[in-house]
Structure formats: C-alpha cells, structure tokens
Design a binder for these strands. Structure first.
Length: 186
DNA sequence: CGACCGATCGTCT
DNA sequence: GACGATCGGTCGA
C-alpha cells in the first residue's frame, strides 16, 4: 500500500520563491470509487475531483471547510481515482518561512500537524491541484532515512464519520510516537 | 485534560 | 441551500 510507503519520504515545495520541505509522518488512503469517504465514490467525476482521475504523481488539492487546502497525492493509473492525503509532516527546511505563512510565533509541533497546517506551512493551495508532482514546484524525494515496519501504526481515518462502514477501515498510517502526528479519531 | 463551537466558502444537489 | 477528508480558541472540571 502506497500510503505506508510514503511514510518517511520527503515533500519539497518551491512556491513563491521559497523552498520548504518536510518528512511525511502521517497519511490516509482514499480508495476511489468503492470508498464512501472518497470524493470519487461511485465514480463521481466533477471539476473538483478530476485530478484524482489523472495518473500517479498528480496533486489533488481542494478546499475544506471553506478555509483549509488539503493536499493529496494521486497514486494509480489514469481513470482510477486513488489518492493519499498527507496529514502531517515533520519540518526539515524553511521553518522560518513556515512560521510566517502560518502566522505562528514559535516553532512547535502544531506547525505541520494536520492536513490544513501542512498545506499552509508549505504554501500549497488550490492552484496546485492537477499539478504533476515530478515538476520542481512540488515533488517527493527521499534520503537515507529508513522506517522499520514496527514503527508504523494504522487506525481509522479522521473526520469521515459520514462514510458509514468505510469510516471503520484502518486506512490511516503514521509513525508511532512522532510528535507531529495529528490527534486521534473522534 | 475533554467537549464544544465558530469561522468561512466552494461544491454539489 | 446544506455541508464538509479542519483548526484553534474557550469553557468547565
């Protein structure tokens, strides 16, 4: 499962002349047309969800609650709308700029905890939806950091109670004990 | 701590 | 016209 493999990888953004990067510590998988929690459930295909139907390594960014831009990585072949929501990263580069973007005063674990904060800190917004992630604006990289399987935990996804039985699926993955991992499900 | 609540607007029905 | 793949502040214990 790709949501698991993304843990420990690095997201780098070059936006507005600013470079920021962070290590992925929490993800959620959205399993396309069979997943009631997915925007693409039952093959729903609209202007908003169209990028999810693109091939792997495309960005799907959308506005949530009228104020948060949530960043997803599309993972499958063209026309199969699978995506991974990046829920938290551990900042690596550009913390000063992240603080400015988020309006926070001091560097703490809330800087990039939760999907809304990740996008805000890294400068990702709706304009980036549909963007190819092999571009240099937003891309995924990796370094020597290795995660052992035993460091990975899973749980049901956050905030998807409306999805019925699919809300129970353990499609959320995170690095155990990492302080940037967001709150537990409600 | 936990529970609750308001902000805020694009998207879909 | 209703409703979020959220966040941060407040309130009470």
């Amino acid at each position: 499962m790709i949501a698991r493999e993304l843990l420990g990888k690095i997201i780098i953004t070059n936006i507005d002349g600013i470079t920021t990067s962070g290590r992925i510590v929490e993800t959620e998988a959205y399993n396309g047309s069979t997943d009631k929690a997915s925007h693409a459930y039952a093959g729903r295909r609209t202007n908003r969800t169209e990028p999810m139907y693109a091939s792997a390594a495309t960005a799907y960014v959308y506005l949530c609650y009228g104020m948060h831009h949530l960043f997803n990585i599309v993972t499958n072949q063209k026309d199969i709308p699978h995506a991974i929501l990046i829920r938290a990263v551990e900042p690596l580069q550009g913390m000063e700029d992240m603080l400015i973007r988020t309006g926070k005063r001091k560097l703490d674990y809330t800087l990039t905890k939760g999907p809304g904060n990740v996008s805000k800190a890294m400068g990702i917004n709706k304009l980036h939806t549909g963007l190819n992630l092999l571009s240099n604006t937003i891309f995924i990289s990796e370094d020597d950091y290795k995660i052992d399987e035993t460091e990975i935990a899973s749980s049901p996804r956050i905030g998807v109670a409306y999805a019925g039985d699919d809300a129970l699926l353990a499609y959320r993955f995170f690095i155990k004990g990492n302080p940037f991992v967001s709150a537990k499900p409600r």
